[in-house]
Design a protein around this nucleic acid. Structure first.
Length: 1003
DNA sequence: GCAAGGTC
């Protein structure tokens, strides 16, 4: 084990290459087992792949739709085709486009998936046993990774003759035949991962959890999007189904989702091989789907477990470091201006690249250089010659050469070379290259570009935009795509020329086995799209036309001269065929015609000057360069690269400057410099490759996943402990850069502990700071804060604050800084549905306790006093908004429900009386004299807003579905059991871990 | 308030 606090440079970067010790007990290699579905040998846990790249996603579906329901089955009549299924309109557009384009579907095939399939399954041979099982007419549930694939698979198998019904995702059903026998098919999908990992509630409290404990904490898997109810959907659809066929994408994430699906269906996992099968397909074509059905294999548990491991490692490492450094630095400095000081094995190395360039710029020392500029005049034109030595860093020596050349006075032509050169047309466009061009040429950021591309895709203008492949399959029908674009005047001439002269196939690219390159699918007009979307679409079209255009050809003429022993030359370019540069003019070869020289010619030197220059530092890292670096170093995937870049920007670690160059902020540079001081591994890309390398051992069946998780987590825990121990080194850098909390903010409200004024820190995250007690009290974000009538919280003596959200009719509510951060009632979060205010100020899970949640029985601000009745929309309570005059209203303390009270009132208050009918709080309304609805000009009225006819007629629901009386659900449900809940603050001592930082090299 | 990975 090495302690290398300042380890940097080559040593640090190459430790992976040098290898590491292998701590896991050798797994018994289950060399082979008899498949329960076949008499053939099926390898289940031996290494399946030699080298697995970082997981890439997806097998796209679109092409097959046309194959399934295109003209061959439905004829050319679009309306008939439309009747073939009940998909959404955007799908229909795509379907028609594919049908019209008559795209061949074999073009989605891929080497990667085919090879994986052979390795995993039974060698690519059909499995008669599984086939027989499926031909008994038993219902089978087929699950794809996304709705579009489910539609395509169903369309392919059913030939378009299916019924579709709605569910959490669409369900397509049909009777079909399989090997000549009847079979019932039910095809549906998930929407990516069904579950995500998180810590149990006991570990969610930042105050009460020492981040080091997170490393050994259990992790929970819960539905990613509970509102969509995918788990319930799968369970329902699996009911009565004998077989489950898993059509998830063919990569590790897909294998993992396989087991998520199995888990949801309720079919026991030990039915794998009997009732549960995996379809491995490399494209969504009838042929491939049919092959997959004939060669059903088993889901790969090892690969699935490797993803489980990654998820747990990423969670524990990211959250532990993030919580520690966030609390540490936000508890000390007031102007960090970031809601959270996050750490992650992808985002931090991403920031590291930006800061590395920043450091190169900052440490750059310009150096003067000199060069000879020699000019001749030929045919009346002055030509500047290039010096063979380019430049020298010694002025005197340059002067010496200048004198030698000047003394000679003439140049002799010693060589003339004329070569036919070729600038190759581009290969297909993949996601990463699209994002790079969008950023560098169009000025559109990766995240925005991706959203635009996805929109263009759903509108049917382009093919699936998330692809790694730059190679088109051999059978791709380029002519159909060109035909679809030919009517656009911008490139109609180019396309007609290509179609008349015979276009070429794109240059050979890389086939990653996912989707074909990003390709225009139908013609769009500038008017139909927004400006930037049009520019992006235009580029995709130009790029595609470029791929099928000839190469650019030109003649390069180089003339070499000597004078005084020095060599000079001039180079000319003459374009003979523009080729693809006609449609991509920004890549054109600059023409530069030279006058005619002959070997042995003597030319007088017109002048020979000395040029003085200075070396310049590189520019800040561009987004485009960053994307290349991330791709090269395996940081993120094509789908997540834009997210990581966006993250470091949103967290205020970098700013996007002109030319979309990423300039690190003081916070970004200080963080990276801090990691470099303590443990440079933390911000190097190796940290990601290390995790990948470790989980690959699981995926290949070489190590037990629990052992790997435990080992990796232990290493990171040591790194964490070392980081905590040495945090003062990083803090010294922060001290030099940022202002202490005591010097930040303005005095606003009184602390209940010391009675002195606390400071309001308005930079993110908004918080209060008591200089005397050195305590930080976080506030709801993205709103405004002011003192609330100097009212004191009866629970702790803190002055109340009023938080107001932003926007028209925005809600406002009072809160006590202390109660908000440490609810004084046990289980307040569970009691009231674990609500909180998220970034947007909306209610969400897990926040503290504003006054509208407080169960204090006598405080005039509490839910008990201000609550009026049960919310008609949720299980919350409607609270009188105390600052809503003159537009009096009730707000739900858990949802967006708003009830408008009588406007013609200058005062509305709650009383301590209850409605005898429904237990709601009786309110007192003091109507305006001129607008009172009461008889004889009376203004005071008491009543229940539900049962009092007058009041009920004057209220109005602003949000929500209905407003009706519910008996027995008055205000203030659930009393707290008293004070004394967990108010513990601060971390436990960091001295628990004295081990020095663990280097990955020692693994 | 935390990670990274799917998908929309």
């Amino acid at each position: 084990m090495m302690s290398r606090p300042l380890m940097m440079g080559r040593m640090a970067r190459c430790w992976m290459a040098e290898g590491f010790s292998y701590p896991y007990s050798k797994m018994p290699r289950r060399t082979s087992s008899r498949s329960p579905i076949s008499s053939k040998l099926v390898t289940t846990s031996t290494p399946r792949e030699v080298a697995i790249p970082r997981p890439r996603r997806d097998v796209e579906a679109l092409g097959i739709v046309a194959a399934a329901i295109g003209p061959s089955r439905c004829g050319g009549d679009k309306s008939k085709r439309r009747d073939c299924y009940k998909g959404g309109s955007s799908r229909l557009v795509r379907t028609e486009l594919f049908a019209l384009a008559n795209l061949p579907h074999q073009h989605f095939s891929s080497h990667r998936c085919r090879s994986r399939y052979r390795a995993v399954g039974n060698g690519g041979r059909s499995n008669p046993t599984s086939r027989n099982l499926l031909t008994l007419g038993s219902p089978s549930l087929q699950v794809a990774e996304k709705p579009s694939i489910a539609l395509s698979i169903a369309s392919a198998i059913s030939g378009g003759r299916m019924s579709t019904r709605k569910g959490s995702t669409d369900v397509h059903e049909f009777d079909g035949t399989f090997q000549g026998s009847q079979a019932f098919f039910r095809v549906t999908s998930v929407i990516g991962h069904v579950f995500s990992v998180d810590f149990p509630p006991a570990y969610q409290n930042w105050e009460g959890t020492d981040p080091v404990d997170l490393f050994n904490a259990p992790v929970l898997r819960s539905e990613c999007n509970p509102k969509v109810h995918i788990r319930r959907h799968l369970a329902q659809e699996a009911r009565g189904c004998t077989y489950l066929i898993l059509w998830l994408d063919c990569d590790r994430e897909g294998e993992n989702i396989c087991y998520e699906v199995i888990n949801c269906t309720g079919i026991p996992e030990n039915e794998v091989g009997r009732r549960i099968f995996r379809a491995k397909f490399s494209s969504v074509t009838e042929k491939d789907i049919s092959n997959a059905m004939d060669n059903l294999v088993l889901p790969n548990k090892d690969e699935a477990l490797s993803v489980d491991a990654r998820q747990e490692i990423d969670l524990k490492v990211g959250v532990a470091f993030t919580r520690f450094q966030t609390r540490y630095f936000q508890g000390k400095y007031g102007n960090l201006d970031s809601r959270v000081i996050s750490y992650g094995p992808c985002q931090t190395p991403t920031l590291g690249f930006c800061v590395q360039r920043y450091q190169q710029i900052n440490t750059f020392k310009p150096e003067k250089f000199w060069s000879l500029r020699t000019y001749v005049i030929k045919d009346g034109d002055e030509i500047q010659l290039e010096w063979d030595r380019k430049k020298l860093f010694d002025f005197d020596v340059t002067v010496m050469f200048q004198k030698m050349v000047a003394n000679d006075g003439t140049l002799i032509v010693t060589d003339i070379s004329v070569k036919e050169e070729c600038k190759a047309r581009p290969s297909g466009l993949n996601t990463v290259n699209l994002l790079k061009v969008a950023s560098s040429a169009l000025g559109i950021g990766p995240q925005t570009a991706m959203h635009m591309a996805e929109r263009l895709y759903t509108q049917g203008y382009i093919s699936y935009p998330r692809t790694e492949s730059t190679a088109y399959p051999a059978s791709f029908d380029f002519r159909s795509v060109l035909s679809a674009l030919v009517h656009n005047p911008l490139w109609s001439n180019n396309i007609r020329t290509l179609m008349d002269a015979g276009f070429v196939k794109p240059r050979q690219g890389h086939d990653a086995g996912d989707h074909p390159p990003i390709t225009p699918m139908r013609s769009a007009s500038e008017e139909a799209l927004e400006t930037d979307a049009w520019r992006l679409y235009q580029y995709i079209c130009q790029h595609f036309i470029g791929t099928v255009s000839p190469d650019c050809r030109y003649t390069r003429t180089a003339v070499e001269f000597t004078s005084g022993g020095e060599i000079f030359r001039c180079v000319g370019h003459r374009v003979t065929s523009k080729g693809f540069t006609s449609i991509m003019p920004w890549l054109a070869v600059a023409e530069n015609n030279l006058p005619t020289f002959k070997n042995g010619d003597t030319v007088s030197i017109h002048k020979v000057d000395i040029y003085e220059g200075s070396t310049t530092p590189p520019d800040y890292l561009s987004e485009s360069e960053l994307i290349s670096l991330m791709e090269k170093n395996g940081i993120g995937t094509d789908a997540s690269i834009p997210v990581h870049i966006n993250n470091i920007s949103e967290r205020n670690y970098v700013q996007v400057n002109s030319g979309r160059r990423l300039v690190p902020t003081a916070l970004g540079t200080t963080l990276i410099r801090g990691y470099q001081c303590i443990d440079a591994d933390l911000c190097l890309p190796d940290i990601r490759s290390f995790i990948e390398q470790q989980i690959t051992l699981i995926a290949k069946g070489k190590a037990d996943h629990l052992q790997v998780i435990q080992h990796v987590i232990q290493q990171f825990m040591k790194k964490y402990s070392y980081f905590v121990k040495k945090i003062e080194n990083m803090d010294a850098l922060f001290e030099a850069q940022f202002s202490p909390l005591a010097d930040s903010g303005r005095l606003l409200s009184k602390c209940g502990k010391c009675g002195r004024y606390m400071k309001y820190i308005s930079t993110q995250p908004m918080r209060m700071y008591c200089i005397t007690c050195e305590e930080v009290y976080y506030l709801p974000q993205n709103g405004t804060i002011k003192l609330y009538k100097e009212i004191i919280c009866p629970l702790d003596g803190f002055e109340l604050l009023l938080f107001s959200m932003v926007g028209p009719d925005a809600k406002s509510f009072p809160l006590c800084p202390c109660c908000y951060n440490s609810p004084p009632f046990e289980g307040i979060d569970k009691l009231f549905g674990a609500i909180k205010l998220d970034d947007t100020g909306k209610l969400g899970k897990g926040a503290g306790m504003p006054c509208f949640l407080c169960p204090h029985p006598t405080c005039k601000q509490s839910m008990i006093t201000q609550g009026v009745c049960a919310c008609p929309e949720c299980s919350g309570t409607l609270i009188l908004d105390p600052v809503s005059a003159p537009k009096w209203r009730l707000l739900c303390n858990m949802c967006n429900c708003v009830v408008l009270l009588p406007h013609a009132a200058h005062r509305i208050t709650t009383t301590d009386k209850k409605c005898s009918t429904c237990e709601s709080t009786i309110i007192e309304v003091d109507f305006n004299k001129k607008a009172t609805p009461l008889e004889d000009g009376a203004t005071l009225h008491e009543g229940c807003i539900l049962c009092d006819e007058l009041l009920h007629s004057l209220i109005e629901m602003k949000h929500g579905k209905s407003f009706f009386m519910r008996r027995g659900r008055g205000r203030g449900r659930g009393r707290a059991r008293g004070r004394g809940g967990s108010r513990g603050r601060g971390r436990r001592g960091n001295s628990r871990h004295d081990d020095p930082k663990m280097s990955f090299r020692d693994f």
